[in-house]
Design a protein around this nucleic acid. Structure first.
Lengths: 192, 192, 192, 192
DNA sequence: CTCTAATCGAGACGGTACGTCGCGTCTTACG
DNA sequence: CGTAAGACGCGACGTACCGTCTCGATTAGAG
């Protein structure tokens, strides 16, 4: 029942937190978030039921904590795109990154997790956009953020859901066309 | 407890179903979906608790049924946009319609309802797009539908969330720019 | 609501009542009373659900009505035994009668039906004993009745439950020894 | 809501189980078993509704558990009577015991509880009779047990139901005459 | 041979209790 | 100490039956 061999105990609390995150991630690959119970996660993490609540007030808090890191990495690649005149390489990099971590992102974007994720995503994006030098822009900032995040998530979600996923290049093209270009200044598309 | 005066009792089953839908709609204007219990809805509808489940297996089924009608109306205005060369008037009409029913759509798009709504939305959109004459298009159809619906919902959702909502014209502009134009053929934006 | 005037026409109502009784009896041979629902009985009787309640306020009322007849027949054979100096032939007759109707009595005495049955039994027995010329007796009358009925029911119940039921003669012997003789005057057993 | 003062918490699980039994016993003195709901009992025990089912699968299981102890005590006094040549003192002791615990036994024998009780009674009696040295006997063992238990319960039940209960001595006489003597070997009553 | 009212089937309904489940808090025992 | 184990209060869930009710269709017996 217990782990009788732990030689270097490594601050149990830290171990528990990591185990819970890892367990949630694993479980999410097979089960929707709303089907998971705190007990499920605790057991999968090899952690006592009550211990779960010592670290997180509830399931969503764990998910949010889990997502924070990945979102953070991704956002530092996503947001700059919106302020760049030459976004191709960045978009490409974003998609490549998602692809290389597709196990994680599949888990995060399917099931009921997407809702929590989007909110955290927007929260972080808004923080970032607040400190950015505000480029002259013809869209309300909060709309730009909400739209970009929702659209990007939807596109990636669609991508990872597909039975035969498209190559990274193609997705980068869609992303640029559907998210980046439309939110850039009008000048970027001198259609008339 | 007895009401001996109700003039046209109107086939009970029909009355109950309608009452539940109306009650849910009303409650959604003040409370998030996940905070509502079947008991709440039944009581608000003046209907017995068990009667709720005689009509719907759960909350989401009620919401879906409720949404079906409104989505249907909206979709007959939304989808044509994607296949039209001159989408301005349609986009305008769409936004105007949402605005005139903003009480309903606020309720449907805030709280946890948006998830269920989006799924039903996509389901109907995909059905429609299946019967449409498939214009030559350079985006995967299912991506087009998923993106359009998610983006449109996000934009409208943002609109109705705002403390001082923008005028219909402005929103129609955003919608066209962020949803319609990007999903139309490349020729629409001969940027290069 | 009540029809106090229908003179003889045997009205459908009579048919329904009989069907319900017959259906209950049939069902009781395979299912315990408490497992049966009003719906079950109504369906087995080929009668509408609401029609059940037009005839009986609840399950027990139906059972009681059903039992009344059989109990009445049996009681006219049971009670006299207690006042007779030579009870052998009567006891024999009682057991023979039960045996020839063992399908009915099995149904009535197994499952939860026995409780209702015993009460009705005692009720009728007490009525009868009230009109009888009260023999001098050294047991309280109500105890005699309660004991006799309960004991007789238990013995018959045991009999019909057995995989290989004893012959009628043997049971008549038990019945006389355990029920009849002990409740007769002390003189019957001048043991000391 | 919080009780920070409970002095000797005494192993919760044990406390809950005992509280439920005590509550059922109390409620049975005023209400028939079938009128009691799990909620009633839980509330009377000061215990959560769901906690009821953590200890017992249903009402009857609780009753059975509750009865087991008392029945056990009683049976060790009841069964020996059937194998003794001089049963008077034992019968007397049995009735005296019931009388001194008449509150408990009234509760257990009135209402719908008697059925469950009798079954448990018979179950225990059969176990005991199985280990006993089998005296030569001219009645089937299972019949003896069923009859004795049913008869004894009926007699005691009648006793405790009476407005002016008979004295213990008198009841012991009835019990001996109606239950003990008839089930003993024929030799005990050399009627011929 | 209609016409009218009793009776029926069908089954929706308000209600009550069920037994299950999950949450988040708590207590206890152990290492 | 801190943690594993899990009992507990709470409250929603979805189910099952109850007994009442409304609704048409059927039908019997009075005109």
């Amino acid at each position: 029942m217990l782990d009788l061999t732990n030689p270097p105990p490594k601050r149990r609390m830290t171990r528990s937190k990591g185990a819970l995150q890892q367990a949630l991630l694993t479980l999410l690959q097979t089960t929707a978030l709303e089907k998971l119970t705190a007990k499920d996660i605790a057991e999968a993490a090899g952690v006592g039921y009550a211990t779960f609540f010592r670290h997180y007030p509830d399931k969503d808090a764990l998910l949010q904590d889990l997502a924070k890191g990945e979102i953070s990495k991704l956002l530092t690649m996503t947001l700059p795109l919106l302020y760049t005149v030459e976004p191709r390489p960045s978009t490409q990099a974003l998609c490549a990154y998602v692809w290389s971590n597709r196990a994680v992102w599949s888990a995060l974007l399917t099931g009921g997790a997407a809702g929590v994720l989007k909110e955290e995503f927007i929260r972080q994006a808004q923080e970032l956009s607040a400190v950015h030098p505000e480029k002259k822009r013809d869209l309300p900032d909060s709309l730009t953020v909400a739209f970009s995040v929702a659209a990007a998530i939807e596109i990636i979600s669609w991508w990872l859901r597909e039975p035969n996923p498209r190559p990274v290049d193609e997705m980068a093209g869609y992303m640029e066309r559907l998210v980046v270009r439309p939110t850039m200044g009008e000048g970027s598309c001198p259609s008339k």
